Computed example of a mutant assay.
Amino acid sequence: MKNTGRILIASIGIVGASAAQGDQCADLGLVVSAPTDALETLICESASEAVELFERCNVPAFRPPLHIEVVDELPEGCLGVFHCGESRIDVLSPEHLETHRNPESAFAFLTAEDYFRSIVVHELAHAGFDTLNCPIESCIASDEYVAYNMQVMFLSPDQQAQFAAQGETGETVSRDQISAAILFMAPDLFVQRAWAHLQQREDPCGYIGLITDGDIILDRERYTGP
């Protein structure tokens, strides 16, 4: 179902104090574990912007309290992980992100900080989607469609244009071109198609709402390939 609630964000005074940062994250329903106050601030600010984006675009609010922890290591290929049913997100620090990110990925043009912020938003979208009921065996394609599109929508207009220029520009993308199989075999292709497909909708945020309401399910199969 759509998120119709409003999460109020309290204004913060002096940014430098760790207690103030903790209060800011608490107002968002978050508990953040980060090695520095600056990184905690970055997560809180990103989450605050994400909450406003999700409200505008019909992405459900996550269940508080949600714990976000900055870690030095994740399973290979992972830069951030939402642990389903555990209200917990792990994300690599910007420094470790630089050594693990794919230099040829669809997001390679972003700075480490901007990429880190977008990953936080991506995982928060997963946390919101986790509040929904999937009527079939798996809704992973729908879940990732929403999370990746929120990740790109979070970027600046110039960054969005740079991202879009790498994809299948000018080509109409159908729902048949978005699947769990593509997600696992070619994740960059999946996110590029997902963004192009959403931008071709007359009302992108309305389309996201149809997905989160359960009126549209992008999944047709559960991918169990290699």
Rank of each mutant, 00 (worst) to 15 (best):
L124M: 07
C84Q: 12
F54R: 06
Y207L: 08
E104H: 06
F116L: 09
Q151P: 06
D23G: 11
V59L: 02
D213Q: 15
L189S: 04
P65D: 02
V91T: 01
V32Y: 06
Q21R: 14
H83M: 09
R222F: 15
F116P: 00
L30C: 10
R193E: 11
A38W: 11
P135Y: 07
T212Q: 14
D188M: 03
E144P: 01
Y148P: 01
G16R: 13
Y115C: 08
A125E: 00
Y223S: 15
T169I: 14
F82D: 03
I14M: 13
I7T: 13
D176N: 10
Q192I: 10
M153R: 10
A61F: 04
S179T: 07
D158E: 12
I216N: 14
I136M: 09
E86G: 00
G5F: 07
F163M: 12
R175G: 10
R6N: 14
R193T: 07
D72P: 05
D215E: 15
E168N: 14
L218P: 13
E144S: 01
T99I: 08
R201G: 03
A165D: 09
D23H: 13
V31I: 09
C57L: 04
C57Q: 00
M185I: 10
A47S: 13
A161C: 08
A127S: 09
S179K: 03
W195G: 05
I211V: 15
F82Y: 13
N3G: 12
V59Q: 03
Q21C: 13
T111V: 04
S33F: 12
I7Y: 11
A17G: 14
G80F: 00
R220S: 15
E73C: 04
V51N: 03
S179R: 01
Q162V: 14
E113T: 11
E86T: 09
P94Q: 11
G209E: 04
T172H: 10
K2C: 09
A10F: 14
H122W: 05
C25W: 10
N3S: 12
I43C: 08
L183Q: 05
L30R: 08
D143F: 01
W195T: 08
D215F: 11
Y223L: 15
E144W: 01
R88H: 05
P64T: 08
D72I: 08
V70M: 01
A10E: 14
E113G: 01
M150Q: 05
P103W: 02
Y148W: 02
G29I: 03
R175L: 10
L42R: 15
A108H: 04
Q200L: 02
M153Y: 07
E144F: 02
I43F: 10
H197R: 14
R88P: 00
I136G: 06
